[in-house]
Computed example of a mutant assay.
Amino acid sequence: MSNELFIDEKELLTCIAAGDEAAFRQIFHAHYNKLASFVQKLTKSHSTTEELVQDVFVKVWLNRSELASIAKFESWMYVIARNHVFNHLKKTAREYQQQQAWLELVGADNLEIAGQSDAVDMYSFIEKSIEKLPPQQKKIYLLKRQNGLRNEEIAQQLNISMETVKKHFTLALRFIKDHARHGIEVLVVFSLLF
């Protein structure tokens, strides 16, 4: 189809399903502002809103073959947007929790001494510490910290006792703390010398 305007949304969706970019642009312009307003209320961030709304429309385009069978496009699109926002917020919260846990682990004083520019290096020390853990400790640490599983869930998933989970997690924390602290102390000394 060419640059004609589609009046009927069903016809528009059918054309998009067939790969019509003009039809896609029309639906994009028809829904962008309203969808952005919805996402903005959830994220409270203009840049995040723009990114997420664009992601929603990319998903619409990538799933265009389904569009002809969708009865209520706007509702379908809002569900995609809502899920996308919630996934983004969960990821952001998980990253924040990890950052806070690592700050507790290595001590905020060490971070202040070394300065903000070295924070990335310190973060990499912690990452390297995790990589050096024995396999079972690493698995338990990641299940607990990254996936947010409770001890009971980890024990069930790995088919081990809760006491074993607690023991391995405690050992992992001790190793990470000692290894990361040593790395951070080296960074602090290095930053003071240079």
Rank of each mutant, 00 (worst) to 15 (best):
S2E: 10
N3A: 10
L5I: 08
F6W: 15
I7H: 05
E9P: 06
E11H: 01
L12Y: 11
L13C: 06
C15F: 12
I16N: 05
A17L: 11
A17I: 09
A17Y: 09
A18S: 14
G19S: 09
D20C: 11
A22L: 01
Q26A: 06
I27W: 01
H29F: 10
H29C: 08
Y32I: 02
N33Q: 12
F38R: 00
F38S: 01
V39Y: 00
S45V: 01
S45C: 08
S45G: 06
S45I: 01
H46M: 05
T49E: 01
T49N: 03
E50P: 00
E50Y: 01
E50R: 00
L52K: 00
V53Q: 04
Q54S: 10
V56R: 00
F57W: 01
F57M: 00
V58T: 08
W61M: 07
N63S: 15
N63H: 13
R64M: 03
R64N: 04
S65D: 03
E66P: 00
E66R: 13
L67Q: 09
A68N: 03
S69T: 15
A71Q: 14
K72A: 15
F73T: 13
E74Y: 14
E74F: 06
W76H: 02
Y78P: 02
V79N: 11
I80N: 03
A81P: 00
R82Y: 09
N83Q: 12
H84G: 10
N87L: 10
L89D: 12
L89S: 15
L89I: 14
K90I: 04
T92Q: 12
A93K: 14
E95M: 11
Q98V: 11
Q98S: 04
Q99V: 06
Q100Y: 05
L103I: 07
L103Y: 04
E104W: 04
L105D: 03
G107C: 04
D109M: 05
N110Y: 09
L111E: 02
E112K: 10
D118W: 06
A119Q: 06
V120L: 10
D121M: 04
D121H: 07
M122D: 09
M122T: 05
M122I: 10
S124V: 13
S124D: 08
F125P: 00
I126E: 00
E127Y: 09
E127H: 12
K128S: 10
I130C: 06
K132G: 03
P134W: 03
P134T: 09
Q136C: 05
K138Q: 11
K138Y: 04
K138G: 13
K139F: 06
Y141D: 02
L143M: 15
K144Q: 11
R150P: 04
E152T: 10
I154R: 13
I154D: 13
I154C: 12
Q157A: 12
Q157T: 15
L158C: 13
I160A: 06
M162A: 11
M162N: 14
E163G: 08
T164V: 15
T164L: 04
K166G: 04
K167M: 09
H168S: 02
H168I: 01
F169C: 07
L171E: 14
R174D: 15
F175R: 05
I176M: 08
H179A: 14
G183V: 12
G183Y: 13
I184G: 02
I184M: 06
V186Q: 12
L187G: 00
F190N: 15
F190P: 01
L192I: 11
L193G: 05
